[in-house]
């Protein structure tokens, strides 16, 4: 699976949650801001654990954050 197979709504969800900054989200889920940047740009596929942490932060299911576009 490549990063292009996975799209995400992190940027939109951040703005819907009080315009949360990348740094704030990074601190909430325990990663660096660079990782959030890479995720939003679709250049990095997170681990299942990180995906679940992000989804829980926004209060949505994992599918609400990440969408698999592959076969």
């Amino acid at each position: 699976m490549s990063a292009s197979d996975l799209s995400n709504q992190i940027r939109r969800l951040r703005f819907e949650h009080g315009e949360m900054t990348q740094q704030a989200l990074a601190e909430r889920v325990g990663v660096t801001r660079q990782t959030i940047i890479a995720l939003e740009a679709g250049r990095y596929v997170p681990s299942l654990l990180l995906a679940m942490r992000i989804a829980r932060t926004f209060g949505v299911p994992v599918e609400g954050v990440f969408q698999y576009n592959g076969e």
Binding site: M1, A3, Q34, A38, A41, R43, Y44, V45, P46
Partner: peptide, 9 residues
């Protein structure tokens, strides 16, 4: 790092 790390964890 510039490319985003890598494609897949």
């Amino acid at each position: 790092s510039r490319r985003g790390g890598a494609h897949v964890s």
